[in-house]
Computed example of a mutant assay.
Amino acid sequence: MDFLKLSGKRFLIFGVANKKSVAAAITKSLLECGSLVTLVVRSVARREQVAKLFPACEVLVCDVEFEDQIAQLAAELSSREEVFDGLVHSLAFADYSDGMKPFHETPKKAFLQAVDISCYSLTALCNALKNKLAHDASVVTISISTTKMASENYGYMAPIKAALDSSIAFLTKSFSRFSKVRFNTVSPGLLKTSASAGIPGYVDSYLYAEQVIPRKKAVETQEAADVAVFLLSPRSSGIVAQSLVVDAGMSINYFDADIISRAMKSES
C-alpha cells in the first residue's frame, strides 16, 4: 500500500556524503517507497563513492559554492522533460580548521563561506531550478533542533541555521506568486553522523543529550529522515513554512531532577 503516495514520484536530493548522512537515509527510504531519485553531490570523487551506495540513482555533480556550477546543473536539467516532485537540501559546511573560537572571534571569511554553502545555496538552487519543480512540489531542508542555544562546540553554525529557518518562510511567500511549491525544515537534535563526529567536543554533547532525552536514547538519523520523507509526500500538503523539531523530547527535559542532582554534586 502506497500510503504516502510516493511511488513514481521524482525527487532531487543534494547532500549525500556517505551512508551515515541524513540525505542518504532519505534516499534509501524514498527508493523503498518506489520513488525515482536523482542525487547531486559536490565533486566527481564524491559521485564515484555515492554511485556505489545507490547504483539505481543518477548522480550529478554541483558544488553549490560556485554560481557557474549551479547554472550548469540547471541547464543540464532544463534539457530534460521530467520535473521534480520534491527537492531535499541537506548541505552544511563550516571551516573549523583553526579550531573553535569564541563566537565574537568568528572569522568573517569562514562565516560568509558557511552562510553561502549552508544557507544561501537553498535560495540559489530553488531559483535556478524553479522551472524544474512540479507546480505543487515539496522542498525540504535540514536544520537543527534549536538555533537559540549557544552551544560552544557548534561554533557559529546556529546563527546560520537560523537564517536557513527564516528562508523557508520567504521562499514560500515568493514562490506562491507563481506556484504552490511549499518549503519546510526538518530540525533534528544531535545525530551520529560522520560530519558531526569531526566537530570538536560533539561526542560529549551527544552523550549528554542521551541523558537529557526522556527515553535516554539519542535521535537516530533515520528518524529525522522519516520526517523529511513525510514532508516530501502529498500527505503533508497542509504543512507549509514550518520547522519540524525531531529531538525525542530533549527540549522538555533540561531540568530533569537526576541531571540537576548530579550537576550540583559535581560542583560541591
Rank of each mutant, 00 (worst) to 15 (best):
Ile168Ser: 06
Glu81Asp: 12
Lys5Gln: 15
Lys19Asp: 02
Pro214Phe: 00
Glu152Ile: 07
Glu223Lys: 12
Met250Asn: 07
Arg182Ala: 00
Val240Tyr: 11
Ala137Glu: 10
Ser174Phe: 11
Cys57Glu: 01
Ala114Asp: 04
Ser145Trp: 04
Ser166Glu: 06
Val61Thr: 13
Glu81Met: 14
Tyr254Val: 03
Lys192Gln: 00
Met100Thr: 13
Ser251Arg: 14
Ile160Asp: 04
Thr141Tyr: 12
Ser35His: 02
Ser151Gln: 12
Ala128Tyr: 03
Ser266Met: 08
Pro188His: 03
Glu67Ile: 14
Glu81Pro: 09
Ala162Phe: 06
Ala75Thr: 09
Ala45Tyr: 03
Val88Ser: 09
Phe54His: 13
Ala24Pro: 05
Gln69Met: 04
His89Thr: 09
Asp63Ser: 08
Ser145His: 05
Ala51Ile: 07
Lys130Gly: 06
Ile142Thr: 13
His89Lys: 10
Ser43Phe: 04
Leu207Ala: 06
Lys173Trp: 12
Leu232Ile: 01
Ile144Trp: 00
Val245Ile: 02
Gln113Glu: 04
Ala124Asp: 02
Ala56Cys: 14
Asp258Val: 03
Asp98Asn: 10
Phe93Gly: 00
Cys33Lys: 08
Pro55Met: 05
Leu129Lys: 10
Arg10Asp: 02
Leu30Arg: 02
Tyr156Ala: 09
Ile259Ala: 00
Glu82Gly: 12
Asp2Met: 04
Asn184Leu: 10
Ser90Asn: 07
Leu30Ile: 07
Ala128Glu: 00
Gly8Ser: 07
Asp116Ile: 02
Ala162Tyr: 00
Ala45Lys: 10
Gln222Phe: 00
Ala169Pro: 11
Thr27Leu: 07
Lys161Cys: 08
Pro214Lys: 04
Val50Tyr: 07
Glu48Ile: 03
Val37Ser: 06
Asn131Ser: 11
Val140Ser: 11
Ser251Trp: 10
Leu87Phe: 01
Tyr120Trp: 15
Met1Trp: 13
Ile26Met: 12
Glu152Arg: 09
Val59Ile: 12
Ala224Asn: 07
Glu81Cys: 09
Ser43Met: 00
Tyr208Cys: 09
Ser233Met: 09
Thr123His: 15
Ser121Lys: 13
Val186Phe: 04
Ser21Val: 02
Ser268Gly: 15
Ala71Gln: 14
Ala158Thr: 12
Val83Ser: 10
Phe84Asn: 05
Ala56Asn: 13
Ala241Asp: 07
Val59Lys: 03
Val44Asp: 14
Lys180Asp: 09
Tyr120Ala: 10
Thr146Lys: 07
Ser236Asn: 06
Lys161Phe: 04
Lys173Asn: 15
Pro159Asn: 10
Gly155Ala: 03
Gln69Trp: 02
Val41His: 11
Ser205His: 04
Asp85Asn: 13
Met264Trp: 09
Gly155Leu: 01
Asp2Cys: 05
Ser43Glu: 04
Cys119Arg: 15
Ser194Phe: 00
Ile13Thr: 01
Ile213Gln: 05
Glu105Asp: 09
Cys119Ser: 15
His104Cys: 07
Pro159Ile: 13
Val59Leu: 05
Leu91Trp: 07
Asp204Gly: 13
Asp68Asn: 08
Leu133Asp: 11
Thr141Lys: 10
Ala163Leu: 14
Lys101Ser: 07
Ser97Leu: 06
Arg46Pro: 01
Ala45Pro: 03
Tyr206Gln: 13
Ala137Tyr: 14
Met157His: 01
Lys9Tyr: 13
Glu58Val: 14
Val140Trp: 07
Ser187His: 05
Val203Met: 09
Ile213His: 01
Phe175Asn: 08
